[in-house]
């Protein structure tokens, strides 16, 4: 069932509508079902969630009998932005993710934000899918405000992402979609993956597996799901090293995304195509894994070219996960092969 959750007339012969697709169990609802909401497109240039929405609906429809709860899919919270390759809300030049919880008596943008919150509020889990931005590629990860750590990390672990990043609280973030819902007792996870303006099917499939796993744990799905991979969890700001461009120029990478690096490894160069010289050679300041890498080549002084998660954190997670895996293996004798595939992340 496709429903319009907010609607507003534009000046000339056009109505702006925000729509959702609700899927309910084949036998109807009793009112006791759990509900998961999958939301994307708050930033109009982040498209990774488009494929996830499609694939969720496709798989559910294929095995409709396995659906035991409510799935709400919201593929386009900022339709004008998606249509015009604009991150924010066109004409207003506003970041939609700084408008929540919105205001029904406010302007058009605040009004839409208020209706979005009204519709999503009360979900048993909300997944807000972002795609970094057009400059940076991100490994599938969930970002959690430290205020909601204890509540959200256990849910995030079920979603098959590679990395959970618990970050510091900031007043600016209080106007985000996720904060507005989390502070109103609706658990909301922010997924960042891939890169703006593109679809990385591999990541989409990975997250879809995770969302089905989460749905199964929530009692929304009774079909077979795969064991989620064990994410690396970072809770300490010192775990992450930022690499900012020291010079303005063109960034050419020398390593791959999600590569384990040693201190001193050559990450990439900033070159000057006019003079034909290297302006800056970027080397890894620490041992670690490169979970963010710059995709868009042009950089100004200060532009982010990558983020590294320090080796100790990666190692610590691996040791914990090996221990968990060992315990799990002793308990679970069936489906061992599936499970091990899950560990390696090969679906």
């Amino acid at each position: 069932m496709i429903k319009t959750i907010a609607s507003v007339s534009l000046p000339v012969d056009e109505v702006l509508e925000i729509k959702k697709h609700r899927i309910i169990p084949a036998g109807g609802v009793t009112g006791k079902e759990k509900r998961i909401s999958v939301v994307t497109g708050i930033h109009g240039d982040e498209l990774e969630g488009q494929y996830v929405c499609y694939e969720m609906i496709r798989r559910i429809n294929e095995q409709k009998d396995n659906l035991t709860g409510i799935v709400d899919i919201y593929p386009a919270m900022n339709p004008l932005g998606i249509d015009s390759i604009t991150r924010g809300i066109p004409a207003f030049d506003l970041d939609m993710n700084r408008l929540f919880p919105g205001n029904k008596d406010g302007d058009m943008t605040e009004y839409m934000a208020a209706y979005i919150i009204k519709d999503v509020l009360g979900s048993d889990a909300v997944i807000d899918i972002h795609a970094s931005n057009i400059y940076l590629t991100e490994i599938p990860q969930i970002r959690i405000n430290e205020l909601h750590r204890d509540w959200l990390v256990p849910i995030a672990k079920k979603t098959n992402v590679d990395f959970i990043w618990v970050h510091g609280a900031s007043t600016v973030l209080e106007s985000t979609f996720a904060y507005s819902l989390n502070s109103r007792n609706t658990p909301t996870l922010v997924v960042e993956m891939g890169v703006g303006m593109r679809i990385t099917k591999k990541y989409g499939d990975q997250l879809v597996e995770g969302l089905f796993n989460l749905m199964r744990e929530m009692g929304i799905w009774k079909g077979k799901t795969k064991e989620p991979r064990k994410p690396i969890i970072s809770e300490n700001p010192d775990d992450v090293t930022y690499l900012n461009a020291a010079k303005s120029g063109v960034f050419v990478p020398n390593v791959k995304h999600w590569e384990r690096l040693k201190k001193g490894d050559h990450i990439g160069s900033i070159i000057d195509p006019l003079k034909g010289v290297v302006l800056d050679k970027i080397v890894s300041p620490v041992d670690g894994i490169l979970f963010t890498i710059r995709d868009y080549p042009i950089v100004s002084e200060g532009s982010l070219v990558g983020r590294l998660l320090r080796e100790e954190v990666v190692r610590a997670s691996e040791i914990v996960n090996e221990q968990i895996s060992k315990n799990d293996r002793e308990q679970v004798n069936e489906n061992t092969r599936d499970y091990m595939d899950g560990q390696k992340g090969e679906f």
Partner: peptide
């Protein structure tokens, strides 16, 4: 010259 709805 144009306005949206709900605009102050």
């Amino acid at each position: 010259p144009i306005t949206y709805a709900n605009t102050a």
